Amino acid sequence: MPDQVSAAPDRSTLRLALAVGGLVLAVLLGFGLGRLNSGGAATAVGLETTDHTHPPGTAPHDHGAVADGSASTDAGGLAISAAGYTLAPLTTGFTAGRAEPFRFQIRDAQRRPVTRFAVVHDKPLHLIVVRRDLTGFQHLHPTMAPDGTWSVPLTLPQPGTWRAYADFTTVADTGAQTALTLGVDLTVPGRYDPRPLPAAATSTTVGGFTVEYAGTPQAGATVALTFRITADGATAPVERYLGAYGHLVALREGDLGYLHVHPESQLVDGAVRFSLTTPGPGRYRLYLDFQVAGVVRTAEFTVTVP
């Protein structure tokens, strides 16, 4: 009788198969957990968000970085389109003193609404609005519908031309991020009486607080600015706002070029420190948002850069 070959695998073959299967399963589980921990799967009202983080030890910087990673000296917000993206408002006309919805989309090079944004400073998009004489500063946070339309109630109190800046970071299918600030003019009919820019000063008061800054901005250089907030001579207990102890926007007089800078992650001897790169000489208006006892206030400064 011929020898019969058993159809059942021997024990060594079975052990090898189990080991290989276990290894494959571990790799798949690790990949899945890695995606969950990356933050890329977080979704809210159709918006895929990815936390925008900086490597440990990275110095504060603006989001206008050039290819080699150094700070850009170019101001943002001067154009409605850049890097293949366009700020597309649904309306640009407003009535003075009336709250009206401001709706817009961010569209890609194929004119498709973008719906994936990185969360930067606790929000996927920051909307800055100011009149062209640099008065009436507003820092708003629109909400996005599933079709990619952003909306926020907006009141423009005085006639004139206003500038709206959308500050955001898109997330591509590959995970690549593109940080941009795009700008568009809004119009309010009526007599426009522009106000002169206040004189340069390093100290101001707002809401019972005295805000002073130290540091001298220089054209084309990155300089540290330290803001100290006091009340009745004592350092105020500044709270985190938008994921940091302060939020600073700088606008250039004339063309309203936009600089968005970032603070140190911790207070420095009770003060808030930023790194500011000024693109060139001129006068700039600084707007510092800070929070104490749950209330956000804005301190404003005029800075002259020789």
Rank of each mutant, 00 (worst) to 15 (best):
L140T: 07
S6L: 11
L14F: 08
L248T: 02
L286G: 08
T216G: 06
F168L: 05
R15N: 14
P146N: 10
P146Y: 09
A299N: 03
V303M: 08
G207R: 02
P142Y: 06
L16E: 15
G183N: 02
V45S: 15
V296Q: 09
L197Q: 13
G64W: 04
T235N: 07
G207E: 14
L186W: 02
G22Y: 03
A26G: 12
T205H: 13
A19L: 13
H139E: 12
A172M: 01
L256W: 03
L127E: 03
T169E: 12
D147E: 09
T92P: 03
P159H: 07
A26H: 09
Y287C: 09
A88K: 13
G84K: 09
G34W: 10
T277N: 07
D62N: 15
S265R: 12
D133K: 04
A176M: 07
A44Y: 13
T181N: 01
R228T: 15
R285L: 01
Q266M: 00
T277D: 04
L36W: 07
T304R: 10
T161M: 12
L78N: 05
P101Y: 10
Q291D: 00
D62T: 14
P217L: 05
A71L: 12
D122W: 05
Y165Q: 11
P89T: 08
Q105A: 10
L256H: 10
T210H: 12
L33G: 13
G246V: 07
E100S: 11
L134Y: 08
E239H: 05
V171F: 10
R132L: 09
F274Y: 01
I128W: 01
R103Q: 13
T181M: 00
R252P: 07
T143W: 14
V211N: 06
R228E: 00
L18D: 13
T58I: 12
I80V: 14
A65Q: 14
V272M: 00
P237F: 04
R103L: 02
V292L: 09
V292H: 04
Q4T: 14
V261I: 00
V295W: 06
L23H: 12
A96Y: 06
G160K: 01
L16R: 15
P196S: 05
T169L: 08
D51W: 07
A250G: 11
Y287D: 09
G30E: 00
R35M: 15
V211A: 12
L154T: 05
